[in-house]
């Protein structure tokens, strides 16, 4: 099993074990927070020189989903790049892969706080937000119903952290898809405010469902 199917405001969606969201009705593949170019940005700022492979690692996983689902549309839900300079300085090898993956399909970059603009010289077009039926696709959750990224949600399960979808009444939050991304625990106040009740779908070799309930008070 590579996905968990569910309904969200009349849309039939599937939370993939990879952390991507699939809308079979229109053939849309939605991924959040790729953060391409993160290592380059950190190096530029005088930080540590991280292994410069996160672009390859991220696109390899994205490529596997594209190969498996052959989407008509791919949507990056914001923070596709760690910043606009990183998008422009993208490693040619990574840019090539991106070109190939975008061939024959629409590719949309929703702007995020890290990349509020159009990436020059790369396939696809930039938008601030868009609609999927009655649901808004945007980077950071706002007026629901919407599907968003930004927070990099994770859950604790069997003693480890896993990236997770958070599914509530008004908001569907996607986990970060990028390789070099940390996470915010689902019970952090910011996230419980957005999704006070619902379920989480933990990513991994297969999706695992668990409840999000108000925490009992100690």
């Amino acid at each position: 099993m590579t996905g968990h199917g569910f309904q969200f405001h009349g849309l039939r969606l599937e939370a993939r074990a990879s952390g991507a969201l699939w809308w079979p009705g229109g053939g849309w593949l939605i991924v959040a927070d790729l953060h391409l170019g993160k290592s380059e940005r950190m190096a530029r700022r005088g930080g540590p020189l991280l292994p410069p492979y996160e672009g390859l690692a991220t696109l390899e996983r994205l490529g596997a989903e594209i190969a498996a689902l052959n989407p008509r549309v791919v949507v990056s839900l914001g923070d596709g790049f760690d910043d606009l300079a990183a998008a422009e300085a993208l490693d040619p090898q990574v840019a090539d892969i991106l070109q190939r993956q975008a061939r024959g399909r629409d590719w949309l970059w929703i702007g995020g706080n890290h990349d509020p603009g159009a990436p020059a010289g790369l396939p696809g077009q930039a938008v601030a937000s868009m609609m999927l039926g009655p649901v808004t696709l945007r980077h950071e959750a706002g007026q629901g119903p919407d599907i968003s990224g930004h927070f990099h949600p994770v859950v604790r399960l069997a003693g480890e952290r896993r990236r997770a979808f958070l599914l509530g009444r008004d908001h569907l939050l996607l986990p970060a898809f990028g390789a070099y991304t940390g996470g915010l625990l689902h019970d952090d106040a910011t996230l419980t405010a957005l999704v006070p009740q619902g379920i989480a779908v933990a990513c991994g070799t297969s999706p695992i469902i668990l409840p999000l309930a108000p925490r009992r008070m100690g």
Binding site: S39, E40, A43, R44, G46, P48, L49, L50, P51, P52, Y53, D91
Partner: peptide, 15 residues
């Protein structure tokens, strides 16, 4: 100096 990677990535941003 460079991170020592097989892929020479940080020519402009060496430490």
């Amino acid at each position: 100096a460079t991170g020592g990677y097989a892929l020479r990535a940080y020519d402009r941003w060496q430490r």
